[in-house]
Amino acid sequence: MSELPFAEVIGDPIGHSKSPTIHKFWLDRAGLAADYRAAHVKPEDLWIYFEERRRDPAWRGCNVTIPHKQAVMKLIDRIDPAAERIGAVNTVVPEHGELVGYNTDYAGFLEPIQPLLAQQHLFRMARVFGTGGAAKAVVLALHDHGFTIVIAARDLAKARSLREAFEPDERLIAPIEIFAHPTDFPFDDREGILDLVVNTTSLGMSGQPPLALDFSHVPPNAVIYDIVYAPLETPLLAEAKRRGLRTIDGLHMLIGQAAAAFERFFGRPAPRDADDALRALLVG
């Protein structure tokens, strides 16, 4: 057992995770005598992992990545209501003798758009691409902040299931392929309207084809948010910038969700005074 307090990230595979870089950066800046590491945990070993960590007084918790975000829910003692609603846990911490599961993707996604959400709007609309692991946290966060949401997906059954989690509406799901082709839809006056386009798929990630989106489907002055962070500027964001639209890259959500977890692990807010240096470290 470790004498130094530590947290970690678990997954299978795990070598790609940027969580150790983020948390060690903050631990150094905060001057905390603690560690953060990565642990390769296979699905069949997940229950053994938690049984061992329960007995380690130095363990402060773990982040959970693919493919364990749902499987861990059956192995812990209590699940935060927000994580229960999302249906996935990405952070587990020991609290008063129990293992408690949280989901920090919700808060992490919202963090970079908080200045927009603080404004008054006549109407808020989001076009969300994808139905995967992060999509439910994203759509629930947007729904809770007054957005009307269109879900674009390859599998309409999954889109339907996702909408049922907050507001069933067959009119607000669409095949993702439709958005690859031009439309002559005449957008009305968007004054006072907040339009958001969000990619939650892996399309545009290194080694993957780009998201096929014809920008005739994108309202004027929309904000384009891509949760992919490798590469930092996806083809979607590059094209949006070329058209003069506001963009948000995936590192914002990654750092935001990590900050929420850091505070649970180590009992103090993450030192956010050097986010630019952290971003440079992550993309360097």
Rank of each mutant, 00 (worst) to 15 (best):
A174T: 13
P209M: 12
L194C: 06
A174G: 11
A174D: 15
R171K: 14
D184Y: 01
F179K: 02
D169E: 05
R171Y: 11
T201D: 14
S206W: 07
L211I: 10
P168T: 09
T183R: 05
M205H: 12
S202K: 06
L196S: 01
R171T: 12
G204V: 06
V197Q: 07
A174P: 02
A174M: 13
H181T: 14
E191C: 04
A174H: 15
I173Q: 05
L203G: 06
H217V: 06
P186E: 10
I173D: 07
F179T: 00
T183W: 14
L213G: 09
H181E: 12
P209C: 13
P175F: 11
S202Q: 02
D188E: 15
E191R: 10
T183S: 09
E167Y: 05
E167N: 06
D195N: 12
I178S: 02
A174R: 15
D188H: 10
D169P: 03
G204I: 09
H217G: 04
I178E: 01
F215L: 10
P182F: 07
I178P: 00
T183Y: 08
D184L: 00
F185H: 12
H217M: 02
F187I: 06
G192I: 03
I193Q: 11
P182L: 04
P182Y: 04
H217E: 03
P168Q: 03
L172T: 11
D214C: 04
T201E: 13
Q208M: 15
N199G: 06
L213C: 03
D214E: 01
P210S: 02
R190F: 00
P210D: 08
N199V: 08
S216K: 04
H181M: 04
E191H: 10
S206E: 13
L194Y: 01
V198E: 01
A212E: 13
G192F: 11
I178Y: 06
L203Q: 07
I178N: 08
I178R: 13
P175Q: 01
M205N: 08
P186Q: 13
H217L: 02
R190D: 15
L196N: 00
G207F: 12
Q208Y: 14
E191Q: 07
S206F: 09
S216T: 14
S206G: 07
D195F: 04
S216M: 05
T201W: 11
L172N: 10
P210R: 00
V197D: 08
T201V: 02
I193P: 11
S206P: 03
L203A: 05
L211K: 04
D169M: 11
H181S: 02
D214H: 09
F215V: 14
F187W: 15
L211P: 01
V197E: 00
N199I: 12
F179L: 04
L213A: 07
P209G: 07
G192E: 13
P186W: 10
M205P: 04
L211D: 14
D184M: 01
S202A: 07
P168W: 03
I193L: 03
E167M: 08
L211G: 02
D184W: 03
E170R: 10
V198W: 02
D184S: 09
D195Q: 00
L203Y: 06
F179E: 00
F187N: 09
R171A: 14
R171L: 13
D195Y: 14
N199D: 08
E177L: 08
R171V: 08
I176P: 00
T200C: 13
